[in-house]
Design a protein around this nucleic acid. Structure first.
Length: 576
RNA sequence: GCGCCCGUAGCUCAGUUGGAUAGAGCAGCGGCCUUCUAAGCCGCGGGUCACUGGUUCGAAUCCAGUCGGGCGUGCCA
């Protein structure tokens, strides 16, 4: 392994021990990329109080104990006590060569692989997927790819909304339409129409409402004909969601579906266990858990309602059952919930309750991977002019169509099939990248024009950088033999330095669960590449030695871009 | 009322977990295509990091309060 930052980290720590004793081994050397040098170590400033010496003096003592002659060209103390570190070109070149030779691009596997359950997407049966599902689906899928790339055992869980009171009316509507008609309607993906019709009848026709309520009872009682009808609804919806996932290059399959109904048989047991432990008590007829620290509008304690007054189980029961199942049966130690920010309080209560019940205890822990809303250009929730939610399938279609227009304009000579394929990769990539490149905690403004412009921090810009690399490698005809990368030009330095940060960035994302850091990184890499194109001719380089070295750098960069986009669930076209 | 999240250039967003002079992209102005892809590159202008105080060598970042926006706040999921 030859990642300069971690090597310098280790060297500075060794110097700390030599200069100030073994008790300094726990201090973070704070080696960071710098604009004054390649890296800077900031540890001396923080140690000033602990060592009761001026930071500048500490830095100087540290530097005199620092053994980096083999890797650094220059080491200097600067300002109040920063240690600026500049790498030797030869060492940097050697690191880059190693990165190129390594199939993992110097991204180490996690030192503590664990089983991670990621709960994401979670659309509702017989309901259209909308922009809210977009964020959960795209974020969750990227995190799943990133964590499994580091060697974690990732279990995807699509917590489908396939149970609850609306299914009474949905089944009755299915009966009214006849299975044939219903299948057609659901099959073409017009789920909103189906749901709306059912809802309208439920509200206007009292006899239909009665039938619906009866149907819910039958469904919950396990009535076989009812169950068959319900299965029909679930099946058709799953087929439709599968099509959307395929269009989006989302890795979810039917195997990952574990809907609310799955936990149905466990709910009574969950309630009983909670009651036996004295955690849940009956209040106003409902079985409640009172988690300390939560209060209602009136100031009284806020309950987590496990079982409603009518005997039915609420979603808190399902969520608790899911925590128990994921820890005990699936063996997960990290539970991720890629769910919108408004669910924060609910999930926080569920996690606390599960902890109190003993179902969630170290090393197992749960994290709410919360995200903000998607807004329209007006800064309000992203909706159609009529105020309806926007169908995900329409969004994908428009993205691909807009991309196709661009690609057609740019490459009239490409054959139809290639053009359509590239347009799909670019359109879907733009959609996903726009979502992933924003800090998930904040709301973000959805804007087709901006995300498809391919200027700035967009998917298209990254894909374009990759395609240019591939183009040059194609033109080179002969692949360069494996060999050294010689760093001579400043633009090569920059490119190599950014390239070598890949591992640190991916591990950081695995920790913070913020994929936008990876996007920023790829954008920076693409920017470094631009500088390199500008200053460093590759195929027309002065010598064969330089040409081959630069070709290797181009190949390395293209692989990082491809891998990085891949981790985000975005394809990298060979040409565009 | 209470709780949580957010507030950075005209617009959309970063800011490596407290480090040096706060950065990109759009939009505006000015340069670059007989040169490996101009979907690109270079330069210029643009800031009281919502506000006030505090913590310390050092704050956009941490703490308290104020103002603004959003969300949540017992039987929908």
């Amino acid at each position: 392994m030859c990642d300069p930052q971690s090597i310098l980290h280790d060297r500075v720590r060794e110097a700390l021990v030599v200069a100030f004793g073994a008790e300094m081994a726990d201090a973070d050397p704070m080696v960071r990329p710098s604009d004054r040098a390649d890296f800077q170590a900031n540890v001396a400033l923080g140690l000033s109080k602990r060592l009761k010496r001026p930071p500048r003096q500490i830095a100087e003592a540290l530097v005199s104990s620092l053994r980096v002659e083999d890797v650094c060209e220059r080491v200097e103390v600067s300002g109040p006590g920063f240690i600026n570190l500049t790498l030797k070109n030869s060492f940097l070149g050697e690191c880059s060569s190693q990165q190129l030779r390594d199939p993992r691009l110097l991204v180490s596997l996690s030192s503590q692989p664990e089983t991670v359950v990621i709960d994401y997407s979670a659309p509702n049966v017989a309901k259209e997927m909308h922009v809210g599902h977009l964020r959960s689906t795209i974020l969750g899928d990227a995190l799943a790819r990133i964590l499994s790339s580091l060697g974690h055992h990732v279990i995807r869980q699509n917590h489908l909304g396939d149970w609850g009171t609306p299914f009474g009316m949905l089944i009755e509507h299915l009966v009214d339409l006849g299975e044939q008609r219903a299948s057609e309607e659901l099959g073409v993906g017009d789920l909103n129409k189906f749901y709306r019709e059912a809802r309208a009848k439920f509200e206007q026709d009292p006899s239909f409402a009665d039938r619906s309520r009866l149907r819910v009872v039958q469904l919950q009682a396990g009535d076989e004909p009812t169950r068959v009808l319900w299965q029909r609804l679930v099946h058709e919806s799953k087929r439709y969601f599968g099509e959307i996932y395929a269009q989006l290059d989302v890795s979810l399959t039917d195997e990952d579906v574990c809907g609310e109904s799955f936990y149905n048989p466990m709910l009574a047991d969950v309630a009983e266990e909670l009651e036996q432990r004295g955690l849940a008590t009956v209040d106003d007829g409902a079985l409640c858990i009172f988690v300390p620290g939560f209060s209602s509008r009136e100031g009284s304690a806020l309950p987590l309602i496990v079982r409603k007054t009518d005997g039915g189980y609420g979603y808190a029961a399902t969520d608790l059952a899911a925590v128990r199942h994921r820890v005990k049966t699936l063996g997960a130690t990290r539970l991720l919930y890629v769910v919108g920010a408004p669910q924060r309080q609910h999930l926080s209560m569920v996690f606390s309750a599960a902890t109190m019940a003993g179902w969630l205890c170290p090393p197992a822990r749960a994290e709410h991977v919360e995200f903000g809303s998607v807004l329209g250009a007006d800064g309000k929730m992203f909706k159609t002019r009529a105020g309806d939610t926007i169908k995900l399938s329409d969004l994908i279609q428009e993205g691909v169509e807009r991309a196709l227009a661009e690609v057609t304009l740019r490459f009239p000579e490409l054959d139809d099939e290639t053009r359509r394929r590239v347009a799909r990769q670019v359109g879907v990539g733009a959609l996903k990248y726009a979502d992933l490149s924003n800090d998930r905690v904040k709301d973000y403004v959805f804007d087709f024009d901006r995300m498809l412009k391919f200027e700035g921090n967009t998917g298209g810009y990254i894909q374009y950088a990759h395609a240019r690399c591939r183009s040059i490698l194609r033109h080179a005809r002969l692949r360069p033999e494996p060999g050294p990368i010689e760093i001579v030009h400043p633009a090569e330095r920059t490119l190599a330095l950014v390239s070598l940060r890949l591992g640190a960035v991916i591990h950081q994302v695995a920790e913070t669960l913020q994929p936008h850091t990876l996007c920023s990184y790829l954008f920076e890499l693409a920017g470094a590449l631009s500088g390199f194109w500008h200053d460093c001719p590759v195929l027309k380089a002065d010598s064969e030695l330089v040409r081959d070295s630069r070709l290797r750098l181009v190949e390395l960069t293209s692989r990082i871009l491809d891998h990085g986009l891949g981790l985000l669930g975005i394809q990298a076209p060979e040409r565009m």
